[in-house]
Design a protein around this nucleic acid. Structure first.
Lengths: 194, 194, 194, 194
DNA sequence: AATGAATGAGGCTTCATTCAT
DNA sequence: AATGAATGAAGCCTCATTCAT
């Protein structure tokens, strides 16, 4: 639907408050009226898009986490590969979700965070489900170690994502990113595993 | 200056685009005219504030990095203490800088990023200046290891900052945060140092 | 018909201009199209409702005036009883008619006033038909005296109607109003009759 | 002020809700912005106009009630003369006040009624202040009799006002109205006074 | 007979900026 | 240096009405 595409782009680019419904209807080539015929107001449109985006990605992402390896580094590698694939297949949706996640506007922050928390709990729950903790060194503080691993992965992801914004050959870059990820995982593995 | 305080708060709370010059003049109890007499337009005001904030913090922050220990973990601990102290002494300035750093509005994003990059380069340069790399395990990839350490520190900082937003006893919380930081540094130290 | 009920309420509450066809179709649970299929436009709907309301009340009201007493005070008492009864049996219709009568919107004012005038002439005609004027004091200006009586009755009616808006026990209040009416009629009777 | 004139006319003609701020600025030949620079919103403009109108009339009306005769009919005659004079000197203000008094829009109804009640209490208080009730017939129910008188005066006033709307020679009509008022007062006087 | 998608003008309000004083 | 009146575009949203199905 033209509305969905246009508004996702607008929200992803400018955030909730600065996104302009005028701009959306112009980009979608629809009339002012029809936008508010389908969506009661800006907020409802935004939250609908969020739910729509989550639903679209849910299968492709969570569905595939099930069969992952019990080695946490192996699993993180798989997850990263999935994420990159999704980023490639639904770039607008992914970008919108990221923007929504970091949305600061009070009007929607609360609603998004509620949805986000459920999602993250479910998501992180799956990520760290059935992990074989016996592979870690004896005596190590596993809870904090996993936090460190998580922060490292996120840090890497954010840095690489930034680079992608100006990329012109996405497919190639995805491969490079994945390849560049391994050395970091190796360091972590050697340091934290037996 | 009342203008500076009022506009910093406004920008920090609402971001660049949604900050209202009307609100600023109301809060600063000045006239519309004088604001645009001193600052040609909203953008110039914003960038002035950024430079002002950076200048204010520069001394307190960078000035003290010089004498820091050559043990990277010791140094990171000191830096974190400095940051928390600054956050306590200039909360508005700190908040404004953070908001400016994550500002997404196209109109100022470019200018801020340019300044940010210089700052970060200088900042990170100092953070990792004169570090004694011989303390690290033999054969470890030092560059990437330091990145992992950085991401971990940042991850911790972001998580704790989120908590601070709803705090009512800041001084006490600062101490708790610093105390809570050590276990993570310990894990990293044991894993990466000889 | 659901359309009639819904639109009467809407017009009665908000007046002609602010009544919303959107609200009407929502309340009537019909589609936008069918409303404008039956009624060319808002104005036609409004005027139809008016005629419908008048037709509905005509019988119940005018029909019963015929057999009334020739004593004007007795007749006014009966009329008031009828009015109250109608107000109780068709409150929406009555309210709509009142609102329509005082409608100020230029678009329909003219049409309503034309209908209103005919109605009033016919109505007042009947009210004062076959009245026994010989009961009045000699020498009194009967035309003006009857005007005074009319204004008094209307003044009383308006005041009591205002009270009814916040009533929770209508049936009881109707009785009280009728009972409270008599002292006024007595005063008028004693003053104007022989 | 052009704003005051233009908005009074607009509100008087169309009521609160249907009055258009666009129409006001067009008629006043000002910009959209300046209207909302002076008045925070439509409601505040409306209530300001109300207070302004009341203040303007207060002196001319209430100020002169003081020295009135203690004969209620004489006093009513004077009041009517004052009202007509005011209607002639400030027709827009008078019309606006009448419209505001009958305003039904929920948004302002409450505020207007609060102000109205104070005004009416003060107004009616003065009207019936120091009236010589000993002039009434013995045994008559004075409270209700005065209500009847009031309703009669109001009924007459409303009827005559309606006529004035289409008048082209106001001054002459005022005289005619006042002259036409006397016969009614005479009837009431003869009937209710000793 | 009935639906609801579609339109675009108009609703109130806020905006950054200018300018005469 | 300082005021605040003035502008008009743009903000979100609602409106009555039309039309293809």
């Amino acid at each position: 639907m033209r509305i969905i595409n246009a508004s996702m782009n607008e929200f992803a680019q400018k955030g909730y408050l600065n996104a302009s419904t005028n701009q959306i209807v112009k980009e979608a080539e629809i009339s002012k009226g029809i936008l508010f015929h389908y969506f009661k107001n800006k907020k409802e449109l935004f939250l609908f898009l969020y739910d729509f985006a989550v639903d679209t990605l849910k299968e492709d992402y969570f569905g595939r986490l099930d069969t992952a390896s019990s080695d946490i580094f192996e699993r993180l590698r798989q997850i990263s590969a999935y994420k990159l694939e999704i980023l490639g297949r639904f770039p607008e949706i992914y970008n919108f979700l990221m923007a929504a996640h970091f949305e600061e506007s009070g009007e929607v922050k609360h609603d998004i965070q509620k949805r986000d928390n459920e999602l993250l709990q479910k998501g992180y729950g799956k990520v760290y489900e059935n992990i074989d903790f016996s592979l870690f060194k004896e005596g190590i503080d596993i809870k904090r170690t996993i936090e460190i691993i998580t922060w490292s992965v996120e840090g890497f992801a954010i840095r690489e994502q930034e680079k992608l914004k100006h990329s012109d050959n996405l497919e190639q870059d995805y491969q490079n990113i994945l390849a560049g990820f391994d050395p970091y995982l190796d360091i972590l593995k050697k340091s934290f595993y037996k």
